[in-house]
Amino acid sequence: MKTKDDFPSLNERPAEGVGPDGVPFRVLIVDDSMFIGKQISQILSSEGFEIAGICADGAAGMERYKELFPNVDIVTMDITMPKMDGITALRKIIEFDKNAKVVMISALGKQDLVKQALVTGAKSYIVKPLDRKKVLERIVAVLNK
């Protein structure tokens, strides 16, 4: 006989982008590549995160963080960008809000810059090419810290 246990509810797993209080986490994406910005935003929106903003350089990202604060939970930050690089923007965001949760997005081969970012206060990093699982794992881990 089939019992109810054979048909687990498909909706049992809560969306990862929603906090325990049912409010979506708000993400600021800082990336000069339209493709990467869109990719991160698609992955996160599909899990219920709210995209608070997408900025194409570090200076705009830092300004946007200040405008959004405290209504922003996490930032994804590219490293190589025009105007202001991701590490400088990270430093300025940490100076403004020492509890800021920033996750670096890096191309392979930038280990030195990633280390520098982690020392500066980045909470984690993700190496491109991005895949859905990797992005969600790292972001959720940082939010749950």
């Binding site: 590549s33 339209m34 493709f35 869109k38 698609q42 191309a107 081969g109 491109k128 090419p129």
Partner: peptide, 28 residues
């Protein structure tokens, strides 16, 4: 394929995507 949606014209997103592909390969 990389964007998971049909992109029928050579627009900015297509160019950004191919640029990123070149970036990822060269970086590795």
């Amino acid at each position: 394929a990389m964007n998971g949606e049909e992109l029928p014209t050579m627009d900015d997103l297509v160019k950004a995507t191919i640029t990123e592909l070149a970036n990822m390969i060269t970086a590795q």
